[in-house]
């Protein structure tokens, strides 16, 4: 089985702080990581590889420094890697990004494409289904787990608000995976050593199969009109008191709001 996993390098948004004076985002010192849902997707691919044997290719679009997450993917057990980097790809919204990735995927052999459900820098959850549409493949999103019959059929557990669904689909198809699905493995020592000896294929516009008009800023239907930080609302009263007094303050407030009598 040939599996392609789409991964993205993102700033660790849980580490971003706002400047208390200017209210702007402090980006300095924020680490770049492999997007958590993508890592969950890679783990799912690795488990299929462990059980059935598979060749795993990771693909990412980004600047050259995205090599860091590719090396990490190698160390976890990925076999091949493609880094899509070209000025023509820059400034892309989700649709243009999915066109770029689909353009690369069209030139490759695969049975299964895995993406993370969403990336923590944008939280859009759009690129996976958009890739599936461009390649005319069935999609299943919010994937928690997969059972493979070893031939063509996948039985997929999909998370919903109310519980889950079990869906069945034949390869080739696209799955978007939750990070909570599987605890990702650590990089192995051997993996880390090998990771630095493996080659990364660096592809630009010439290597992919897509109309240039669909890429980058020019191929993006949506634009950012403005961006701003959310202003904090005025703080209310703050009481630093003994627990018993705190209880009375809260009880009085509950009475005032007619929650208790």
């Amino acid at each position: 089985m040939k599996i392609i996993v789409c991964i993205k390098q993102v700033p660790d948004t849980t580490e971003i702080k706002l400047d208390p004076v200017t209210g702007t985002m402090i980006r300095e010192g924020v680490p770049s990581i492999m997007n958590p849902d993508d890592k969950g997707g890679l783990e799912l691919a690795l488990r299929l590889k462990d059980e059935f044997g598979a060749e795993i290719t990771v693909i990412t679009m980004g600047p050259l420094k995205a090599e860091a997450i590719i090396r990490e993917a190698f160390a976890m057990g990925a076999d091949k890697a493609i880094l899509l980097t070209d000025r023509k790809f820059a400034g892309a919204d989700t649709l243009a990004t999915s066109n770029t990735l689909a353009g690369a995927l069209r030139t490759l052999d695969f049975d299964l494409i895995i993406t993370g459900r969403q990336a923590i820098d944008g939280d859009t959850a759009q690129v996976g289904p958009q890739i599936a549409e461009h390649l005319d493949l069935p999609q299943i999103t919010y994937v928690e787990n997969v059972k493979y019959d070893g031939k063509k059929t996948l039985s997929v557990k999909k998370a919903t608000e109310e519980g889950y669904q079990i869906l069945e689909v034949e390869t080739p198809c696209v799955l978007t995976v939750l990070s909570s699905a599987n605890k990702s493995r650590y990089m192995s020592v051997r993996g880390i050593v090998e990771a630095f000896n493996k080659d990364i294929n660096i592809w630009g516009f010439e290597q992919i199969n897509v109309n240039e008009k669909k890429l980058g800023l020019g191929g993006s239907p949506t634009r950012v009109a403005k961006s701003f930080t959310r202003g904090a609302k005025a703080a209310g009263q703050l009481h630093e008191v003994e627990p018993n007094e705190a209880v009375e303050i809260i009880v009085n407030k509950l009475k005032e709001k007619y929650i208790i009598r």
Partner: peptide
């Protein structure tokens, strides 16, 4: 966007 650190109007 950015985990709620910023708002963007699209």
């Amino acid at each position: 966007a950015f985990g709620g650190n910023m708002m963007a109007t699209i």
